[in-house]
Design a protein around this nucleic acid. Structure first.
Lengths: 403, 403
DNA sequence: ACCGTCCCTGAATCATTGG
DNA sequence: TCCAATGATTCAGGGACGG
């Protein structure tokens, strides 16, 4: 079965066409057991999508899910994982199935996706979370740790000083023979927890396509990030409007999506095509393939008061404040570009735009001799990160260290 | 059976002594299926409390729980509710029991108690929540709605300052005799959701009595508040150190507590006499009060691969990679500081720490003459944002613009 | 394979210092 | 004397280690 495609049809039949042990990650988001018929119109009322969540019985529903799970397990690599997304109505029954199919000791986490929602006035607590069960095929599963910031109430001594235990078992800060504190090893932050606060759908984003139960791309990106690497294969056997595939694609993973609804498949294809269209446009203009902005780029842009723009290889953002009545485009030198490459791209992207100031943020040491020869009105600023790296090198040279 | 007492013994036998339909709220916190032995000493090391969570089999465990649940249902009033506290190990099986005993349509909510806690080196996601299942005996259950703030970002808006009219009809903020603004009633806010962020009972909290698995009183108070009124009867058939009873007593509810351990009963009785409830500083002040950094500062730190830290005036973050085997502290010059202020603070904060490199990120143009006179080993780097501002000024001067 | 024990961790408190 | 800043400590989950 070909990668990077969406297939319409019965999920179990389609799964049979996938070779055993070839999939790295499965995001399994079955129709919920809500006993309701969903329908929703798109914004402009042009199209109505429907799907049916009513089942003859809980047993029927669970039988279907179990057969799918068994088929999924077959195609998973031994290092692979499955993330099963379900809501409160049947989450406990589904987890019993997961225990049966994957084994209790392959249960990794119950992920709580929590979000804020408009209140309704029902008697009781406002429902504001969904559960995602994370099971792996074996204990040697693939997992990329994500680190978060420390809690604001944590003090720095805590993080940086080494500790030891006194004779009577008390834990105290370690001191050396001169009575000075001993500093510990480098830290990365706090590992990601199993409670994920992710907005339901960013209302500003164009992401909403009008298909019921659409999941935010951010949620899927986080799953894809922790459980797969670039080039891996991600499968979504109930792909709906294709959010998982969009997330996978944007992160350089391969994907396969199934859905029984032709509407859904059509919609998913359209969403993925839009990415392709952008990509091909970029190629036409001589640009590289679609790449997402990294966290580094986003934070750098924020730190200079710039607004990130997506999908433009020549310009990464614009300063919030204009200069001489015109916007100021900013390009961040990517790891694969020389400064001259960056200049060329920014020049091309800003052709005929009459910007009064263009900025490139240099992120690597340059050895290009053309740097000062290439004459444009582009200003180059060294990224603070690069300055710190150079500073470290300078001091090392002063101290006469060997590299 | 007398109210406002703790009884030692087998929970099912003790339940038999309670009259049918007399209890308003049951907090059901059975031993978890962790297959572990829990033990803890009191602060002064005087006493050691232990209990065993190991079971012959899951079936045994579930059978015990089910019999208790059946007995609990009998004593509950028809308007009564049960809150069953369990962790991920067996939550799904327990919910199946609850469905059986109370009925699927008496499921009200899955409450997620989420918290931050010390981390560990586990491969996978950090465990940071427990589940509480809320079932009622019937659909005409008692429920007191609690309203929360809209969201952290709109916090200030919801407290309305009261206004009054001056003699000439102008609307001004009302002040009291001391000239302070009078705050009006807060808006009602959003109904309480099913995800509860309540700090984990801190290891240093005075509230701690040294009994394992002790729950924070705040958690229990919230349950008692939403599901009972003053004068109602609250039952905790596995009361442990008596947190539920303490919460109930402090809120004017009657209580009955059971535990099979004599130690626990003795401890619970003592706690009820002393009634030590520590307010969570974090909850009282709000998480936001600990966060001192602006978005700009956080982004800047991330853009240089540093980890932000709060709670320290002299240091805003650390580089992720060490220099010469030591951490590298980073301070960002704040808008109210001169570079010299920043230097002094960073110097002070890194006293006795023996850092090999300290960095200040300059964010404002300096006019301090001392800048080059003040001699330290601190390195100063201009923030990219500042460089851009200076660049703009430079060009403006070149072009001969008036400011 | 299995047990107990020790080590590492960091959130949020308590304790102390300093102004 | 008091308040803010910051230094120091506890505890449970998991890994590693040793017997």
């Amino acid at each position: 079965m070909d990668k990077n495609k969406i297939y319409q049809g019965n999920c179990i039949e389609l799964l049979e066409k996938i070779q055993s042990e070839t999939v790295d990650l499965i995001y399994f988001d079955p129709p919920f057991f809500t006993q309701k018929k969903h329908s929703l119109r798109t914004r402009n009322n042009a199209r109505k999508y429907e799907f049916d969540d009513s089942w003859n019985s809980l047993e029927d529903y669970l039988n279907l899910i179990e057969s799918c799970l068994v088929a999924c397990k077959r195609v998973l690599k031994s290092t692979g994982s499955v993330f099963l997304h379900c809501d409160k109505a049947a989450s406990h029954h589904i987890r019993v199935l997961l225990d049966r199919v994957f084994g209790m000791n392959n249960f990794r986490s119950e992920i709580i996706w929590s979000y804020r929602r408009w209140s309704n006035s029902k008697k009781g607590l406002l429902n504001a979370h969904q559960n995602i069960y994370f099971y792996s095929k074996s204990t040697k599963f693939k997992f990329n740790q994500i680190y978060k910031d420390y809690s604001p109430s944590t003090n720095i001594d805590q993080i940086l000083q080494e500790r030891e235990r006194t004779k009577n078992g008390k834990s105290v800060y370690k001191k050396n023979e001169n009575g000075e504190v001993v500093l510990g090893k480098a830290k990365k932050g706090v590992p990601l927890s199993d409670v994920w606060e992710i907005p339901y759908l960013n209302p500003k984003a164009k992401e909403r396509v009008g298909y019921p139960t659409q999941k935010p791309v951010l949620l899927l990106k986080q799953i894809v990030k922790i459980a797969s690497d670039e080039g891996d294969l991600v499968l979504d056997p109930f792909c709906g409007s294709g959010t998982t595939c969009v997330a996978a694609k944007s992160m350089g993973r391969n994907y396969i999506g199934f859905d029984k609804s032709e509407d859904a498949v059509e919609l998913a294809k359209k969403r993925l095509d839009e990415m392709i269209i952008t990509e091909s446009n970029l190629l036409k203009k001589g640009k590289a393939s679609y790449v997402e902005k990294t966290d580094f780029e986003i934070s750098l842009l924020k730190s200079i008061d710039a607004i990130p723009v997506q999908r433009n290889n020549g310009i990464d953002g614009f300063l919030k404040s204009h200069f001489d009545g015109k916007p100021v485009p900013v390009k961040i030198q990517s790891t694969t570009e020389t400064i001259d490459d960056a200049k060329e791209k920014l020049d091309k992207a800003s052709k005929n735009k009459n910007y009064k100031l263009k900025i490139i943020i240099q992120t690597r040491e340059t050895n290009s001799s053309r740097l000062f020869g290439y004459d444009t009105d582009i200003e180059i600023i060294k990224a603070n990160k690069l300055e710190i790296e150079e500073l470290k090198k300078k001091i090392a040279i002063q101290k006469g260290w060997k590299p």
